[in-house]
């Protein structure tokens, strides 16, 4: 049997909202260590990797490793029925072909239970190599979301140039062109508002802005986003999930022909 309980069920709902535009169905791997998921988008230029460690849940029980094929589209619809302060329990009984989502209101006066049928999905598990990136930009996730949304108005691609002093996002298209430059913060009251850059080598990489906007659906999970970049290497865009894990998105840079 598998059972995991999260006092703040809304965190799980945000995780699903962060994934479901990029991948509509995916296999969840459940083990004693926690829940992991890895999936590629249908065009095979982006990959997402999710980790939710078992110690981040209020209670967690996983008697044997399980692979659960789940429609994220359906799960998202079910989770929309959850109250914002509800506790969420996810359960899979032995020999069951369904996942059970139980939602309990904070005052314990309302209890809802939904079952979703599990799917048989083919999944190809790719290894993600440890990479020493040339540059890691940390910035407020709301700011990154706004910039990606604005850049999409100008063109299909966004070029991210990073130097030790700052990071510049630029786009151009039929309507015109534009760029936004953020300097590294020197003095901020709140760490979550800071822009910081760890740099070994300056980088300039171009990405499809449509994908960056899909990644930004996970921005409500975390105040900050980490953008790790090296020339000719997929971008890693990371949002932390509280203290319990992370969502990492990988995106192929565009190559000039």
């Amino acid at each position: 049997m598998f059972e995991a309980r999260l006092a703040q069920g809304s965190i799980f709902a945000k995780v699903i909202e962060g994934l479901r535009e990029l991948v509509t169905e995916a296999t969840w791997e459940c083990s004693g260590n926690g829940i992991t998921l890895q999936a590629m988008d249908s065009s095979h230029v982006a990959l997402v990797s999710l980790v939710l460690r078992s110690d981040g849940f209020e209670t967690y029980r996983c008697d044997r490793n399980m692979s659960l094929g789940i429609s994220l589209t359906s799960m998202s619809k079910v989770l929309k029925m959850m109250g914002k302060d509800d506790t969420l329990t996810i359960r899979v009984n032995d020999d069951s072909d369904a996942i059970v989502l139980s939602m309990e209101s904070q005052n314990q006066e309302e209890f809802a239970e939904y079952e979703l049928r599990l799917m048989d999905l083919d999944s190809e598990h790719l290894g993600i190599p440890d990479t020493d990136y040339s540059c890691v930009v940390k910035m407020p996730s709301t700011k990154f979301s706004r910039i990606c949304r604005d850049m999409a108005i100008l063109g299909d691609s966004v070029t991210i140039c990073s130097t030790k002093d700052g990071v510049k996002f630029g786009a151009k298209g039929d309507v015109g062109q534009g760029s936004i430059r953020l300097n590294q913060s020197t003095n901020v009251d709140k760490e979550e508002d800071a822009v910081s850059i760890e740099l070994r080598e300056a980088v300039a990489l171009t990405f499809a802005v449509r994908y960056l906007n899909m990644f930004c659906k996970a921005a409500p999970l975390s105040n900050q986003v980490n953008l790790s970049m090296s020339e000719d290497t997929p971008l890693m865009c990371e949002f932390k999930v509280g203290d319990m894990g992370h969502i990492r998105f990988y995106l192929a840079p565009k190559i000039e022909d």
Binding site: S43, H44, V45, L47, E124, H125, L126, G127, I128, P129, D232, T233, P234, Y250, A252, P253, K254, I255
Partner: peptide
């Protein structure tokens, strides 16, 4: 292509 280079960055563990 971008896709081939992207996939070659990752590997399929055996």
């Amino acid at each position: 292509s971008s896709r081939q280079r992207f996939l070659s960055f990752f590997f399929i563990p055996h």
